[in-house]
Structure formats: structure tokens, C-alpha cells
């Protein structure tokens, strides 16, 4: 089965440069049968990046994907607190650059109105939009979204497909939170390979709304692939999850940019 990974980073792997790090990550991905990686955020991360830091992290990703244009897609990392700077980054990296998606992390909860112009412009550009979410019993960061925040955002943009990062990590709650929002997709990445995750996501959302991601290199490809390879779901569902759903979301912007896959 073809495997595309929705969720990879440049932090946490050896390499002096962004391109070296992506090269090392791809070498491991090759062993695991992963064809393409979506990459976002730089060699060092900031929870609440300044406009300068945002640009620097995105520059890292631009350098990395330039070296491997046939293997990696870049998502632009934005901070909604800096709306104007984020919109400028969106223009630089997606409208005028090679990136094909948007990564929103923990700077500001995604229920905030500040995200609206970013989502609207990203949708115009057909960019794939990924929003981190988490339910932490130990306490979310001040700007860290829950799936409820995600649903609030999705409800304001009912025609825009959105990806619920980690599905809240407490995935049974996350799946239930996004179940009724047809444009919401579940990212399987970044939590333990607890058995039953993919089965419940497919049962409740349909296989067409579930997407494989690893959160590598912080997570192993192995533990995250196991959620699909080990799941008691049909092969047709595995194909959707491992690549076809992500391809479907990416196809409009890839087509617009003339990128063939």
C-alpha cells in the first residue's frame, strides 16, 4: 500500500541543516515503506513564535523540501496572534512558494476569531489546514486547543476541510467531539499505539475522514504505522487512511500548482 505521512517535523533527528535532517528522516521512511512526508516547523520550535521566528522556521522547511521536491510537502507554520504576519507568511510560502498546507499549533486556541482570516485565505489557496488539538489531564498550554475548540472553528468555516491534529490524543473523546462535523478529519499521529484507535475512528467517522500521520521523528514511524497496519479494518479502509485521503485533500492545491503525483 502507498503510504503518505501527514505529520512530520525537523526537530529531534540528527543533521546540521534542515535538508540533512529531512534526508535522514526520509532514509528511515524508506525502510518503513513511506513514500511522502508532510513537514512543518523548523529545527527548533517555539510555542508562541514571533513573526521573525515564524519566518525562520518556515525557511528551514523551505530549504528542506527544496532538496527533496518529489518526497516531501511543506506546510507553513503560522501564529494567529500575529495575524498580519501570518497572512504574509501564507502568501510567501504557499501563494508564492512551494508549500501546500498550514500548520497551527499552540500559540492560540483555535476557537479564537483571529484564525478566521487565515482559514479564509488558506481555503482560497486550497491549502490543507492542520490544527493541533489535545485533551491533557495534566492541563493544556494556555493557547492549546481541544477538539471542542476545533469544532468551533470548523463550524465557522463549514465548507473548509480541516484536520484535527492528534484527534485530541484522548482519542475516544476526540472522535466523539468531531463526529458530527463532516469536514473534520482525524489525524492518527502522536499518541501511544493504543489498540482500537483506528477501529473506532473508522466506525464513527468513516474511513474517508481518517488520515495517517506519525509525528516523527519525536514518535517512531513504527508505533504510528501500527495503528493502521494492526487495526482490524478492511484493506480498503487502510488504503484510504494511509494515503488516499491525504491525496484527496492535497489534490486541489497540487493541481493548482502544477505538481504531479
Amino acid at each position: 500500500m502507498t503510504i503518505w505521512d501527514l505529520h512530520c517535523h525537523l526537530s529531534g533527528i540528527a543533521g546540521a541543516t534542515p535538508e540533512a535532517r529531512l534526508g535522514n528522516l526520509l532514509a528511515i521512511a524508506d525502510r518503513m515503506g513511506i513514500e511522502r512526508l508532510c513537514v512543518y516547523m523548523g529545527m527548533t520550535w517555539a510555542h508562541d513564535p514571533s513573526p521573525e521566528k515564524m519566518r525562520q522556521e518556515n525557511d528551514d522547511v523551505l530549504r528542506a523540501i527544496a532538496k527533496f521536491p518529489d518526497r516531501a510537502f511543506g506546510f507553513v507554520y503560522l501564529n494567529p496572534k500575529h495575524t498580519a504576519a501570518s497572512l504574509a507568511e501564507l502568501e510567501r510560502c504557499v501563494a508564492q512558494g512551494p508549500m501546500v498546507g498550514v500548520k497551527l499549533w499552540v500559540a492560540q486556541r483555535c476557537s479564537a476569531a483571529e484564525l478566521d482570516p487565515i482559514i479564509r485565505r488558506a481555503a482560497e489557496l486550497k491549502a490543507v489546514i492542520f490544527q493541533h488539538t489535545f485533551y491533557k489531564l495534566t492541563g493544556n498550554l494556555p493557547g492549546e486547543s481541544t477538539p471542542e475548540d476545533f469544532v468551533a472553528l470548523a463550524s465557522r468555516h463549514p465548507t473548509v476541510p480541516l484536520i484535527c491534529g492528534h484527534t485530541g490524543a484522548d482519542w475516544e473523546r476526540g472522535i466523539q467531539a468531531i463526529r458530527h462535523v463532516g469536514t473534520a478529519h482525524a489525524d492518527l499521529a502522536g499518541c501511544d499505539p493504543v489498540a482500537g484507535y483506528a477501529e473506532m475512528a473508522v466506525r464513527e467517522l468513516g474511513a474517508g475522514r481518517v488520515i495517517f500521520g506519525s509525528d516523527a521523528p519525536g514518535r517512531s514511524f513504527s508505533s504510528q504505522l501500527a495503528k493502521v497496519h494492526g487495526a482490524a479494518i478492511p484493506d480498503s479502509a487502510k488504503r484510504l487512511i494511509l494515503s488516499e485521503n491525504l491525496k484527496r485533500l492535497l489534490l486541489p492545491i497540487l493541481t493548482a500548482k502544477g505538481i504531479r503525483v
Binding site: M32, P193, V194, A195, S222, A226, G230, A231
Partner: peptide
């Protein structure tokens, strides 16, 4: 850690590392 974890996670780790 099966059946709490997917068994395949451990198995694949032996492939991910050379």
C-alpha cells in the same frame, strides 16, 4: 504490551532500526 497496544508497533521497531 499487547493487547493494550497494537502488537505491530513493537514488531515494526525491529525493522525501523537497522
Amino acid at each position: 504490551y499487547a493487547p493494550v497496544f497494537y502488537f505491530e508497533a513493537a514488531m515494526l521497531k525491529l525493522k525501523e532500526s537497522v
